[in-house]
């Protein structure tokens, strides 16, 4: 279970700033990750997600601010931090000419605590590939291997940078299950993503990042609930009817009409809006051929916070 008492803080980031020349890639970021959480950093490319992780991992030196892992400050004792975390880097590869088994055995030697190579491979369903090379694996298998490799030192925390980027939906789904099973072992997981479904499905808490800053941080449910317009109501009617009345219905914030009879309304009160539509239909004689109510999602949260879409 996720608790939030201050003595179970696994990762702590304080006023982190990382500049490259004039650009502040990370611009005053602070957050805490608690034991047993899956914590997601959601944001578009270039938001500063990877740089934030690299400072925590000891791969990048902060311009100012501090990061702590398991009570150890990364910048002061990087070796000790590295001993106890598992790291997956975005788009990083492994040695071409070693087998999966040889790679894991080699990496195991870098650490004090070592997991069993064959158990790790078995866990990701790659035991029969133990003597194969990485390039013979499919994209999904490669990514599972990469994440299995982060577990080689039995880490308390694993940090994954865009673990599912580039995978097909099925492979992504299977990787989500794997990440949840790692979390079920009691390991804290920090991941970055620009897929809002991924953040919604996997993460207990999310920090939304944009232009080097955290613009919101909470559970996915709370973030959506806090939106001023948490629903979208869509109807299909005839294009010949006067739609002006729709924007005056209870709860409706704005109306988008595609000119061919499909109308989308963002609403703060779905129930009131729907009964308003029914009343409008009865009075004007306009048919309602289709009615759909969708709760808003993290995409809408991002849109309302930044005025832009996540994938832009």
């Amino acid at each position: 279970m996720v608790s939030s008492s201050s003595d179970d803080v696994v990762i702590k980031v304080e006023d982190l700033v990382k500049s490259f020349g004039d650009l502040n890639a990370v611009d005053g970021v602070s957050f805490e990750v608690h034991k047993g959480e899956i914590f997601g950093i959601l944001g578009p490319n270039g938001a500063g997600k990877t740089t934030t992780l690299e400072c925590i991992e000891g791969l990048s030196e902060p311009t100012s601010g501090r990061t702590f892992v398991l009570g150890m400050e990364t910048q002061i004792e990087p070796e000790n931090v590295k001993q106890r975390i598992g790291v997956q880097l975005q788009a990083s590869a492994y040695f071409d000419y070693l087998t999966l088994e040889e790679i894991l055995n080699l990496f195991a030697r870098f650490y004090k605590r070592r997991a069993s190579t064959s158990e790790l491979l078995e866990r990701v369903g790659l035991l029969d590939k133990a003597k194969s090379r990485v390039k013979t694996l499919s994209g999904g298998q490669q990514q599972r291997f990469t994440i299995a490799a982060t577990l080689i030192n039995e880490p308390e925390v694993i940090i994954l940078d865009e673990p599912t980027t580039g995978l097909d939906p099925q492979a992504r789904r299977s990787l989500w299950d794997f990440i949840q099973s790692i979390n079920a072992d009691g390991r804290t997981v920090v991941l970055t993503t620009h897929y809002m479904e991924e953040a919604e499905f996997l993460c207990h808490r999310i920090a939304i990042m944009d232009n080097g800053k955290i613009v919101a941080m909470d559970s996915p449910e709370n973030l959506v609930r806090a939106l001023p317009v948490p629903f979208e109501v869509k109807i299909i009617t005839g294009s010949e009817y006067n739609l002006d009345a729709l924007s005056n219905l209870t709860g409706v914030q704005d109306v988008v009409d595609d000119g061919e009879g499909t109308v989308r309304m963002r609403s703060s009160d779905a129930a009131a809006t729907v009964s308003g539509i029914m009343a409008w239909s009865g009075q004007s004689g306009a048919p309602v051929k289709h009615l759909e109510v969708t709760p808003s999602n993290l995409e809408d949260v991002f849109l309302s916070l930044t005025g832009r879409g996540l994938q832009e």
Partner: peptide, 17 residues
């Protein structure tokens, strides 16, 4: 250069080695 291109160097840096 291939280790750098494939980020193997960075991956090594992320270990205590």
């Amino acid at each position: 250069s291939s280790y750098r291109e494939k980020k193997i160097l960075t991956r090594i840096l992320a270990t205590p080695l």
